[in-house]
Simulated assay, not measured.
Amino acid sequence: MSPTAIITLIIFFIALVILFSSFVTVRQGTIAVITTFGKYRRILTPGLNLKLPFIENIYSQISIQNRSVELEFQAVTYDQANVYFKAMLLFSVLDQREETIKNVAFKFVDERNLMQALIRTVEGSIRAFVATKRQTEVLVLRRDIVEHVKEQLDTILENWGYHLQDLQLNDITFDDVIMKSMSQVVASNNLKAAAENEGQALLITKTKAAEAEGNAIKISAEAERQAAQLRGQGIALFREEVAKGMTMAAKEMQTANMDTSVILFTMWTESIKHFAENSKGNVIFLDGSTEGMNRTMKEMMSLNLLHTDQVKK
């Protein structure tokens, strides 16, 4: 092969290398950072791009996808209780602007230093928050802890070119002694609540029973009152009818020139007969002497005269 052919072949090979070196493929979800002699030049977006061979170099390829990291660390509360956290951190590049990509590419020496700074910053923020709270408050402040971390880190991460998407506190535990004492407190509180509920239920039952008994007494008393009223009305009507009958009988006997005291004697004997038939006793004591009979007849005649005077009036 002639020297000219060899030179032509070398030139063709160099041109081919230069041609292929001019094309750069950037993967989807990443942005390439181009430097010229070590100085930042520009960025390349996903797809096929051109660059100056041997002059422009790919410094790094920045992922703009979401990234996650798991954390395990310890904090101390205000009352000196150890708290153990297991968390998941979700973060990403803030945006695709050139200034943001430059911060991501040049703020840290490498990926390891970035992750170390990010993790320590999150842990420090949580530790500072927990140090102001008591151990009984930590478990109910999960959302407050997350909001505090986001508020503290947003400005710092933006300066680095990143954004904190989410922080999930998957597990919060204490030392075994504290966990056991907390379980005992919960158990005693549950027993106390159960006792209070049982007492309230018993109180309600007793109250309802008392109300029912009171209502029954009221109903019974009202019924008795109405019955007594009806009995009184019946007795009054009976007396009224008896009075009317006695008046009519007295008038008829006066018309027939008969002694009206016979009516009282008849009522007296009828009363004794009624006592004998309906009384539960076995003996009726009567004064059967002549003086007793005369006294009884005089009393009955006096009552008859009094009743006649009242009727005339």
Rank of each mutant, 00 (worst) to 15 (best):
K218Q: 15
L90D: 05
I263P: 01
F275R: 06
D175Q: 06
N190E: 15
A223N: 14
N190D: 13
S2R: 11
E99G: 04
F238G: 08
M297S: 08
S2V: 03
N215H: 15
K244Q: 13
T45A: 15
A75L: 02
E252D: 12
R42S: 07
F73R: 01
T77H: 01
R67W: 04
L52M: 15
K39H: 08
T136G: 04
L169M: 13
W268C: 03
K86H: 12
Q200W: 10
I235Y: 12
K102F: 07
V69W: 07
N197I: 11
K133N: 00
P3Q: 11
V93D: 00
R97V: 05
A128T: 03
I178G: 01
E198V: 11
D309I: 15
Y84K: 02
Q229L: 15
S60V: 05
S289G: 09
K313D: 11
M246N: 08
I145F: 00
D259T: 12
F85D: 02
F275T: 07
I11Y: 08
A243P: 01
G124R: 02
K244M: 11
I7Y: 11
T100I: 06
L169W: 05
K51L: 02
Q152H: 07
V262C: 06
V140K: 03
E198W: 08
A187Q: 12
G29A: 06
A187R: 13
E213N: 11
I119A: 08
I62N: 00
F85L: 06
M248C: 07
V26W: 07
E222N: 11
V33H: 00
Q74C: 08
T266M: 10
R143C: 02
A81G: 03
V283C: 04
N189W: 05
M258H: 12
D176Q: 10
S183Q: 14
S183V: 08
A221F: 06
N49T: 06
E211G: 08
L303A: 14
L139Q: 04
V122M: 04
E270D: 15
I43C: 02
L157K: 04
I172M: 06
I178M: 01
P46Q: 05
L191R: 09
F13G: 11
I126Y: 01
E222H: 13
F13M: 14
F20V: 14
R127C: 02
M182F: 09
T45K: 13
L167T: 03
S92Y: 05
T136C: 04
Y84P: 01
D287L: 05
T77D: 04
L50K: 05
M179E: 14
L303K: 07
A195G: 04
L19Y: 15
I55M: 06
N57E: 15
Q226A: 11
S302F: 13
V185M: 12
S188L: 12
Q96T: 09
L167Q: 00
G245Q: 14
V33D: 00
R42F: 06
S188R: 09
E137L: 01
T308V: 07
L114D: 01
M88T: 15
A227Q: 13
V311S: 09
T205C: 09
E198N: 14
S68W: 09
S183H: 10
K313V: 10
N257D: 12
I14R: 06
A221Y: 07
L303D: 14
V76L: 00
M258W: 14
K244Y: 11
K192W: 08
K208W: 05
T255G: 09
V186G: 03
T121Y: 05
S125F: 00
G29N: 05
N304C: 07
V69Q: 11
S181A: 10
A227L: 12
